[in-house]
Design a protein around this nucleic acid. Structure first.
Length: 271
DNA sequence: ATCGCCTCCTGCGCGC
DNA sequence: TGCGCGCAGGAGGCGA
């Protein structure tokens, strides 16, 4: 579910409720995530104050009194703020109980996410060490993409979704950005020119910024941290529109599988 | 070094 | 109404 805008929206949604608030109790209903939740999570977190929350790629991490909490939402995860008492929903796997009757709930039907206590800064964790540049910084630019692509004979769509290159570009935004930039998703990454990467960078930044502004794309059950649904989905131009008309030229949009991921594009506009 | 395939898991929408 | 099937936004690990 979450791409970078959803994760950023989640961060902003939960931030005012949990920063400078203290965890008093922890319920772990299911510890079987992508990596198992620390067996001693409850004793580690009890009576710790959360000082701040950060995002790196699609990872969220918090600084606590005596350590760190590293969270990834996987494909179906979400965090939400509840006020005691709120009935537990199916797949609410971890509940942090704070002062002021506030709860932070980690909900994840597919359990591809992470919820890890860390002694050291998560930035040193092997999972975060190999991440590429943040898409909304100056480091992410056409020259960088061109240089990194020299040895990459893979579909450009797979290339921009590779988080060792740039973080936070998932299937939806990759499809949308390639459409706006008029670039065919199956072109090999090492065949694009600088001007093409410049267009791609421009539209990736534009799409991500816009999605963050409106609070993340709504898909299925995504609800932002403050329980307000995002409403970006209606502006998707190709994702989920296979067989419909291209908004630019009215040709019929096609779908191909690229690395097991459905990829919708306009065969006329994208070359 | 690089690439593509597989996997973890549940829920949903579709066609029959 | 019920059932089986394919598909889903992530990302690490594996063999080739």
């Amino acid at each position: 579910m979450p791409e970078l805008p959803e994760v950023e929206t989640t961060k902003r949604g939960v931030e005012p409720h949990i920063t400078m608030n203290t965890i008093r109790d922890i319920d772990v209903w299911n510890s079987h995530l992508r990596l198992p939740v620390n067996h001693d999570l409850t004793s580690r977190l009890r009576n710790q104050t959360i000082f701040n929350i950060h995002r790196r790629g699609k990872y969220l991490w918090m600084t606590l009194s005596a350590g760190y909490l590293l969270i990834h939402l996987g494909m179906s995860g979400s965090l939400r703020i509840c006020h005691t008492p709120t009935p537990r929903k199916k797949h609410d796997h971890i509940i942090l109980h704070f002062d002021r009757n506030i709860e932070l709930r980690y909900h994840d039907p597919r359990r591809f996410g992470l919820f890890l206590w860390q002694e050291e800064s998560p930035l040193h964790h092997s999972l975060l060490q190999t991440l590429g540049v943040e898409p909304l910084t100056a480091e992410f630019n056409a020259r960088y993409l061109l240089a990194q692509a020299i040895t990459r004979r893979i579909a450009v769509k797979s290339y921009i979704m590779d988080h060792h290159v740039v973080v936070g570009v998932g299937n939806i935004y990759a499809s949308e950005a390639l459409f706006l930039a008029n670039i065919h998703p199956q072109r090999f990454a090492n065949t694009l020119e600088l001007s093409e990467y410049a267009r791609l960078v421009k539209y990736i930044k534009l799409l991500l910024r816009r999605a963050i502004q409106v609070g993340g794309t709504t898909l299925r059950d995504f609800v932002a941290g403050d329980s307000k649904p995002g409403y970006f989905k209606q502006s998707l131009l190709v994702y989920g529109r296979e067989h419909l008309a291209c908004v630019k030229c009215a040709s019929t949009l096609q779908s191909v599988k690229i690395n097991q991921r459905s990829s919708v594009f306009c065969p006329n506009c994208q070359i």
